[in-house]
Protein backbone atom coordinates (compact mmCIF):
# COMPACT_ATOMS: atom_id res chain seq x y z
CA UNK A 1 0.00 0.00 0.00
CA UNK A 2 1.38 3.38 -1.03
CA UNK A 3 1.64 5.73 1.96
CA UNK A 4 2.42 8.96 0.09
CA UNK A 5 -0.58 11.19 -0.66
CA UNK A 6 -0.62 13.12 -3.92
CA UNK A 7 -0.55 16.44 -2.06
CA UNK A 8 2.89 15.64 -0.66
CA UNK A 9 4.18 15.12 -4.18
CA UNK A 10 2.99 18.62 -5.13
CA UNK A 11 5.08 20.06 -2.29
CA UNK A 12 8.05 17.95 -3.41
CA UNK A 13 7.87 19.16 -7.01
CA UNK A 14 7.52 22.84 -6.04
CA UNK A 15 10.32 22.53 -3.47
CA UNK A 16 12.65 20.88 -5.98
CA UNK A 17 12.06 23.62 -8.54
CA UNK A 18 12.45 26.38 -5.95
CA UNK A 19 15.65 24.76 -4.66
CA UNK A 20 16.90 24.64 -8.25
CA UNK A 21 16.60 28.42 -8.31
CA UNK A 22 13.09 29.19 -9.50
CA UNK A 23 12.44 32.33 -7.46
CA UNK A 24 9.11 33.01 -9.16
CA UNK A 25 7.23 30.14 -7.53
CA UNK A 26 5.04 31.49 -4.73
CA UNK A 27 2.89 29.21 -2.58
CA UNK A 28 -0.14 30.61 -0.77
CA UNK A 29 -2.16 28.88 1.93
CA UNK A 30 -5.26 29.81 3.92
CA UNK A 31 -4.23 28.41 7.30
CA UNK A 32 -4.00 25.19 5.31
CA UNK A 33 -0.27 24.58 4.95
CA UNK A 34 -0.46 21.44 7.11
CA UNK A 35 -3.40 19.85 5.32
CA UNK A 36 -1.84 20.84 2.00
CA UNK A 37 1.44 19.13 3.03
CA UNK A 38 3.08 22.47 2.27
CA UNK A 39 4.74 23.04 5.65
CA UNK A 40 8.18 21.94 4.35
CA UNK A 41 7.94 24.46 1.49
CA UNK A 42 6.89 27.26 3.86
CA UNK A 43 9.82 26.44 6.15
CA UNK A 44 12.40 26.08 3.41
CA UNK A 45 11.25 29.03 1.28
CA UNK A 46 9.65 31.61 3.59
CA UNK A 47 10.32 34.39 1.07
CA UNK A 48 8.28 32.49 -1.51
CA UNK A 49 5.41 31.66 0.83
CA UNK A 50 2.34 33.70 1.70
CA UNK A 51 -0.13 32.97 4.48
CA UNK A 52 -3.59 34.40 3.79
CA UNK A 53 -5.25 33.28 7.00
CA UNK A 54 -8.72 31.82 6.85
CA UNK A 55 -9.74 34.09 3.99
CA UNK A 56 -10.15 32.27 0.70
CA UNK A 57 -11.25 35.28 -1.31
CA UNK A 58 -8.11 37.13 -0.24
CA UNK A 59 -6.05 33.99 -0.94
CA UNK A 60 -7.11 33.81 -4.56
CA UNK A 61 -7.10 37.58 -5.12
CA UNK A 62 -3.57 37.85 -3.75
CA UNK A 63 -2.48 34.92 -5.92
CA UNK A 64 -3.82 36.74 -8.98
CA UNK A 65 -2.00 39.94 -8.02
CA UNK A 66 1.25 38.05 -7.53
CA UNK A 67 0.78 36.29 -10.86
CA UNK A 68 0.06 39.57 -12.63
CA UNK A 69 3.48 40.72 -11.45
CA UNK A 70 5.27 37.68 -12.88
CA UNK A 71 4.97 35.11 -10.11
CA UNK A 72 3.90 31.49 -10.55
CA UNK A 73 1.22 31.50 -7.89
CA UNK A 74 0.12 28.20 -6.32
CA UNK A 75 -2.88 28.75 -4.03
CA UNK A 76 -3.78 25.86 -1.72
CA UNK A 77 -7.06 25.53 0.14
CA UNK A 78 -9.58 22.75 0.76
CA UNK A 79 -11.34 22.04 -2.53
CA UNK A 80 -14.73 22.71 -1.01
CA UNK A 81 -13.71 26.25 -0.02
CA UNK A 82 -11.48 27.37 -2.89
CA UNK A 83 -13.99 26.20 -5.50
CA UNK A 84 -17.01 27.84 -3.92
CA UNK A 85 -16.08 30.47 -1.30
CA UNK A 86 -13.62 32.11 -3.68
CA UNK A 87 -15.42 31.07 -6.87
CA UNK A 88 -15.80 34.62 -8.10
CA UNK A 89 -12.11 35.36 -7.57
CA UNK A 90 -11.31 32.20 -9.55
CA UNK A 91 -13.58 33.44 -12.31
CA UNK A 92 -12.71 37.14 -12.44
CA UNK A 93 -9.19 37.50 -11.04
CA UNK A 94 -7.74 34.25 -12.43
CA UNK A 95 -9.60 33.11 -15.53
CA UNK A 96 -11.09 36.35 -16.85
CA UNK A 97 -8.03 38.46 -16.06
CA UNK A 98 -5.87 35.62 -17.45
CA UNK A 99 -3.37 35.32 -14.60
CA UNK A 100 -1.01 32.41 -13.99
CA UNK A 101 -2.64 31.06 -10.84
CA UNK A 102 -2.76 27.38 -10.09
CA UNK A 103 -5.66 26.72 -7.71
CA UNK A 104 -5.04 23.55 -5.73
CA UNK A 105 -8.16 22.09 -4.17
CA UNK A 106 -6.84 19.83 -1.42
CA UNK A 107 -8.82 17.17 0.44
CA UNK A 108 -11.19 17.03 -2.52
CA UNK A 109 -14.37 15.05 -2.96
CA UNK A 110 -15.38 13.25 0.22
CA UNK A 111 -11.83 13.14 1.63
CA UNK A 112 -13.00 14.76 4.84
CA UNK A 113 -15.38 11.84 5.44
CA UNK A 114 -17.42 12.30 8.57
CA UNK A 115 -16.93 16.10 8.60
CA UNK A 116 -19.92 16.33 6.31
CA UNK A 117 -21.19 18.23 3.32
CA UNK A 118 -19.68 21.59 4.30
CA UNK A 119 -16.27 20.04 3.79
CA UNK A 120 -17.05 17.87 0.77
CA UNK A 121 -16.43 19.16 -2.72
CA UNK A 122 -18.87 17.35 -4.95
CA UNK A 123 -19.49 20.29 -7.28
CA UNK A 124 -16.02 21.62 -8.01
CA UNK A 125 -15.67 19.92 -11.41
CA UNK A 126 -18.95 21.41 -12.58
CA UNK A 127 -18.32 24.88 -11.18
CA UNK A 128 -14.72 25.27 -12.26
CA UNK A 129 -15.23 23.70 -15.69
CA UNK A 130 -17.97 26.21 -16.47
CA UNK A 131 -15.50 29.12 -16.26
CA UNK A 132 -14.04 30.12 -19.64
CA UNK A 133 -10.22 29.92 -19.69
CA UNK A 134 -10.13 27.67 -16.62
CA UNK A 135 -8.58 24.19 -16.95
CA UNK A 136 -9.51 21.39 -14.57
CA UNK A 137 -7.27 18.47 -13.61
CA UNK A 138 -7.79 15.49 -11.31
CA UNK A 139 -4.58 13.46 -11.18
CA UNK A 140 -4.95 9.82 -10.16
CA UNK A 141 -1.79 8.58 -8.43
CA UNK A 142 1.36 10.20 -7.07
CA UNK A 143 3.43 9.48 -10.19
CA UNK A 144 0.91 11.17 -12.45
CA UNK A 145 0.61 14.05 -9.98
CA UNK A 146 4.34 14.66 -10.34
CA UNK A 147 4.19 14.62 -14.13
CA UNK A 148 1.20 16.96 -14.11
CA UNK A 149 2.83 19.55 -11.85
CA UNK A 150 6.07 19.44 -13.80
CA UNK A 151 3.99 20.27 -16.87
CA UNK A 152 1.92 22.96 -15.11
CA UNK A 153 5.12 24.73 -14.03
CA UNK A 154 5.91 25.21 -17.71
CA UNK A 155 2.75 27.08 -18.68
CA UNK A 156 1.40 30.52 -17.85
CA UNK A 157 -2.34 29.91 -17.71
CA UNK A 158 -4.58 29.34 -14.74
CA UNK A 159 -5.86 25.92 -13.74
CA UNK A 160 -7.78 24.18 -10.99
CA UNK A 161 -6.31 20.94 -9.68
CA UNK A 162 -8.18 18.72 -7.24
CA UNK A 163 -6.29 16.31 -5.07
CA UNK A 164 -7.46 13.98 -2.34
CA UNK A 165 -6.42 13.88 1.28
CA UNK A 166 -5.46 10.25 1.57
CA UNK A 167 -2.76 8.16 -0.12
CA UNK A 168 -3.96 6.50 -3.31
CA UNK A 169 -2.70 3.13 -4.54
CA UNK A 170 -0.15 3.37 -7.31
CA UNK A 171 -1.48 2.87 -10.80
CA UNK A 172 1.77 3.71 -12.51
CA UNK A 173 5.41 3.43 -11.46
CA UNK A 174 8.17 5.97 -11.35
CA UNK A 175 9.68 4.40 -14.48
CA UNK A 176 6.44 3.68 -16.27
CA UNK A 177 4.04 6.61 -16.04
CA UNK A 178 2.89 7.53 -19.53
CA UNK A 179 1.88 11.18 -19.57
CA UNK A 180 1.00 13.64 -22.28
CA UNK A 181 -0.46 16.99 -21.23
CA UNK A 182 -4.20 17.17 -21.91
CA UNK A 183 -4.35 13.62 -23.25
CA UNK A 184 -6.05 10.85 -21.28
CA UNK A 185 -3.83 8.00 -20.18
CA UNK A 186 -4.92 4.54 -21.26
CA UNK A 187 -4.60 2.67 -17.97
CA UNK A 188 -6.07 -0.58 -19.38
CA UNK A 189 -6.83 -1.35 -22.99
CA UNK A 190 -9.78 -3.51 -23.99
CA UNK A 191 -12.71 -3.52 -26.40
CA UNK A 192 -16.22 -4.25 -25.14
CA UNK A 193 -16.50 -1.68 -22.37
CA UNK A 194 -15.01 1.78 -21.88
CA UNK A 195 -14.60 2.93 -18.31
CA UNK A 196 -13.72 6.61 -17.93
CA UNK A 197 -12.54 7.70 -14.50
CA UNK A 198 -10.59 10.52 -12.88
CA UNK A 199 -8.75 11.16 -9.64
CA UNK A 200 -9.25 8.60 -6.90
CA UNK A 201 -11.73 6.67 -9.02
CA UNK A 202 -9.10 5.51 -11.49
CA UNK A 203 -7.70 2.85 -9.18
CA UNK A 204 -11.03 1.04 -8.58
CA UNK A 205 -11.73 1.38 -12.32
CA UNK A 206 -8.47 -0.41 -13.07
CA UNK A 207 -9.28 -3.07 -10.45
CA UNK A 208 -12.69 -3.51 -12.06
CA UNK A 209 -11.18 -3.88 -15.54
CA UNK A 210 -8.87 -6.58 -14.21
CA UNK A 211 -11.77 -8.37 -12.49
CA UNK A 212 -13.89 -8.14 -15.64
CA UNK A 213 -11.06 -9.61 -17.67
CA UNK A 214 -11.15 -12.70 -15.49
CA UNK A 215 -14.86 -12.93 -16.25
CA UNK A 216 -14.15 -12.72 -19.96
CA UNK A 217 -15.17 -9.06 -20.41
CA UNK A 218 -12.62 -6.82 -22.07
CA UNK A 219 -12.57 -3.24 -20.76
CA UNK A 220 -10.59 -0.09 -21.51
CA UNK A 221 -9.89 2.32 -18.67
CA UNK A 222 -9.22 5.93 -19.59
CA UNK A 223 -7.57 7.93 -16.82
CA UNK A 224 -9.17 11.28 -17.67
CA UNK A 225 -7.04 13.41 -15.37
CA UNK A 226 -7.66 16.26 -17.83
CA UNK A 227 -11.34 16.98 -17.26
CA UNK A 228 -10.98 20.27 -19.10
CA UNK A 229 -9.77 20.29 -21.80
CA UNK A 230 -11.41 16.87 -22.04
CA UNK A 231 -9.64 14.40 -24.30
CA UNK A 232 -12.63 13.84 -26.59
CA UNK A 233 -10.53 12.03 -29.20
CA UNK A 234 -9.65 9.26 -26.77
CA UNK A 235 -13.28 8.91 -25.71
CA UNK A 236 -14.46 8.64 -29.31
CA UNK A 237 -11.69 6.19 -30.19
CA UNK A 238 -12.61 3.71 -27.48
CA UNK A 239 -16.36 4.37 -27.20
CA UNK A 240 -16.84 3.80 -30.95
CA UNK A 241 -15.73 0.21 -30.56
CA UNK A 242 -17.48 -0.41 -27.23
CA UNK A 243 -20.99 -1.62 -26.34
CA UNK A 244 -21.07 0.29 -23.09
CA UNK A 245 -19.44 3.34 -21.51
CA UNK A 246 -19.27 3.68 -17.74
CA UNK A 247 -18.03 6.85 -16.05
CA UNK A 248 -16.88 6.89 -12.44
CA UNK A 249 -16.39 10.07 -10.45
CA UNK A 250 -16.22 11.40 -6.91
CA UNK A 251 -18.60 14.24 -7.75
CA UNK A 252 -22.23 15.21 -8.05
CA UNK A 253 -24.12 13.50 -10.89
CA UNK A 254 -24.59 16.90 -12.47
CA UNK A 255 -22.00 18.66 -14.62
CA UNK A 256 -19.07 16.40 -13.86
CA UNK A 257 -17.07 13.84 -15.80
CA UNK A 258 -20.14 11.73 -16.60
CA UNK A 259 -22.03 14.67 -18.07
CA UNK A 260 -19.03 15.66 -20.16
CA UNK A 261 -18.35 12.16 -21.46
CA UNK A 262 -22.04 11.68 -22.29
CA UNK A 263 -21.97 14.98 -24.19
CA UNK A 264 -19.15 13.69 -26.40
CA UNK A 265 -20.50 10.17 -26.84
CA UNK A 266 -24.06 11.26 -27.69
CA UNK A 267 -22.77 13.59 -30.40
CA UNK A 268 -19.95 11.56 -31.87
CA UNK A 269 -20.54 7.83 -31.29
CA UNK A 270 -23.88 7.11 -29.57
CA UNK A 271 -23.71 4.17 -27.19
CA UNK A 272 -25.16 3.62 -23.73
CA UNK A 273 -23.42 5.70 -21.03
CA UNK A 274 -23.91 4.82 -17.36
CA UNK A 275 -22.74 7.51 -14.96
CA UNK A 276 -21.57 6.47 -11.52
CA UNK A 277 -21.26 9.39 -9.13
CA UNK A 278 -22.08 10.59 -5.65
CA UNK A 279 -25.78 11.20 -4.95
CA UNK A 280 -27.53 14.55 -5.23
CA UNK A 281 -27.75 14.73 -1.45
CA UNK A 282 -25.41 14.95 1.52
CA UNK A 283 -23.41 11.72 1.49
CA UNK A 284 -23.67 9.06 4.15
CA UNK A 285 -21.29 9.46 7.11
CA UNK A 286 -18.10 7.49 6.78
CA UNK A 287 -14.52 7.33 5.62
CA UNK A 288 -13.81 7.72 1.90
CA UNK A 289 -13.59 3.94 1.31
CA UNK A 290 -16.84 3.40 3.24
CA UNK A 291 -18.59 6.10 1.25
CA UNK A 292 -17.25 4.80 -2.06
CA UNK A 293 -18.37 1.27 -1.26
CA UNK A 294 -21.85 2.41 -0.18
CA UNK A 295 -22.44 4.22 -3.47
CA UNK A 296 -20.83 1.56 -5.65
CA UNK A 297 -17.82 3.70 -6.48
CA UNK A 298 -15.46 0.76 -5.92
CA UNK A 299 -14.26 -2.26 -7.86
CA UNK A 300 -17.27 -4.37 -6.92
CA UNK A 301 -19.76 -1.60 -7.76
CA UNK A 302 -18.19 -0.90 -11.14
CA UNK A 303 -18.11 -4.60 -12.06
CA UNK A 304 -21.78 -4.90 -11.07
CA UNK A 305 -22.74 -1.88 -13.17
CA UNK A 306 -20.93 -3.30 -16.20
CA UNK A 307 -22.50 -6.74 -15.84
CA UNK A 308 -26.00 -5.29 -15.42
CA UNK A 309 -25.77 -3.05 -18.43
CA UNK A 310 -23.70 -4.95 -20.97
Amino acid sequence: MNKIPNRKVICDVLSEKAAAGDRDIVALCSDSRGSASMTPFFEQFPDQSVEAGIAEQDLVGMAAGLAKCGKKAYAFSPASFISTRSYEQCKVDCAYSDTNVKLIGISGGVSYGALGMSHHSAQDIASMSAIPNMRVYLPSDRHQTRKLFEALLQDEKCAYIRTGRNPVEDIYTEEDCPFEMNKATVAREGSEVLIVAAGEMVYPAVQAADALKEKGISATVLDMYCIKPLDADAIVKYASAAKLVVTVEEHSPFGGLGSMVAQVVSAKCPVKVIEKALPDSPVITGTSPEVFKYYGLDCEGIVKTVEENL
Binding site: V50, D58, V60, G61, M62, A64, G65, L66, C69, D93
Partner: peptide, 10 residues
Protein backbone atom coordinates in the same frame (compact mmCIF):
# COMPACT_ATOMS: atom_id res chain seq x y z
CA UNK B 1 -7.85 45.21 -2.78
CA UNK B 2 -6.83 41.53 -2.40
CA UNK B 3 -5.33 41.62 -5.91
CA UNK B 4 -3.50 44.85 -5.06
CA UNK B 5 -2.13 43.16 -1.93
CA UNK B 6 -0.72 40.39 -4.13
CA UNK B 7 0.87 42.95 -6.44
CA UNK B 8 2.40 44.81 -3.51
CA UNK B 9 3.72 41.52 -2.06
CA UNK B 10 5.33 40.74 -5.42
Amino acid sequence: LPVAVGMALA
